[in-house]
């Protein structure tokens, strides 16, 4: 991209310019215009320089109202919103949030297809699986793998991998990658829970750990996924929603 090409001064006629949206998030007493341009953000950012962009430059462009140039840059997808820049910033300017808004400036259908598809697939079932695994798919693979372990590893013949066990203390989530592509990787986790004597369960609904709707900057569906998962935990009467690796 060539940011020098399209300098668009905006922000006056737009109710919520990028600059304003970020300014609104500053802690008390923070002032976006007091960005020191110190470069702490960029110097510790692995995405600096990729696509001729870095966090400081990105922020300066937002401050200058170059929103169309920002929208034309794919850098918002190179940045992982890891918050290293925010961590380093003496003014606590939330550049990752600015990047998130930058992603939202791109029309939804033009955002990267892979992330979009993962978000849309997660909306298909209440499992929230970004790989589109249904309640039945999950139950089948868990039961199948468990049966094999119980049969081939005698010391675990009593091991359980409960689904929808009411009032279990721990509601354990699982990244879709395991049940869908490498189910044997679920087994070490089960063994640890078993050996520790944990009172745990998966939920047929809301078991998936991932949420790509956040990455595609679709706030409405991001929230929908989180609420679906939280409801699954509450409906089973579990005490702790436990994030796994």
């Amino acid at each position: 991209m060539d940011p020098s090409g399209a300098v668009v001064i905006s922000g006056i006629d737009k109710k919520l310019s990028l600059k304003q949206r970020v300014a609104d998030m500053l802690p008390d007493g923070g002032n976006l215009n007091l960005c020191l341009t110190c470069g702490s953000c960029s110097s510790g950012c692995p995405a600096s320089g990729i696509g001729d962009m870095d966090p400081r430059k990105f922020l300066r462009m937002a401050l200058l109202g170059m929103e169309e140039a920002i929208a034309a840059s794919p850098w918002v997808w190179f940045c992982s919103m890891c918050q290293r820049c925010l961590h380093a910033c003496p003014m606590k300017i939330n550049i990752p949030q600015l990047v998130f808004y930058g992603r939202q400036q791109v029309p939804r259908e033009k955002r990267p297809k892979g992330i979009l598809a993962s978000c849309d697939l997660a909306l298909k079932h209440d499992t929230c699986s970004a790989m589109g695994a249904s309640e039945e798919d999950f139950r089948f693979v868990v039961e199948d793998v468990l049966a094999e372990v119980r049969e081939t590893q005698p010391e675990f013949k009593e091991m359980q991998a409960p689904i929808d066990k009411r009032e279990a203390i721990l509601f354990v989530n699982q990244n879709s990658r395991e049940p869908v592509t490498e189910p044997d990787e679920m087994v070490p986790l089960w063994k640890i829970l078993h050996r520790a004597g944990a009172d745990w369960t998966y939920g047929s609904k809301g078991w998936a750990g991932e949420n790509y709707c956040m990455f595609i900057a679709d706030e409405q569906n991001w929230e929908r996924i989180v609420r679906t998962k939280a409801r699954a935990v509450d409906d089973l009467g579990c005490q702790v929603w436990l994030n796994t690796e």
Binding site: P46, S80, R84, H87, P112, I115, F215
Partner: peptide
């Protein structure tokens, strides 16, 4: 907290920008 991101977050594994 001071660690560098590996680059796998933010959806990057699905974004299609592999070389970046």
């Amino acid at each position: 907290s001071n660690n560098y991101c590996c680059g796998g977050g933010g959806g990057s594994l699905q974004s299609g920008f592999v070389s970046e």
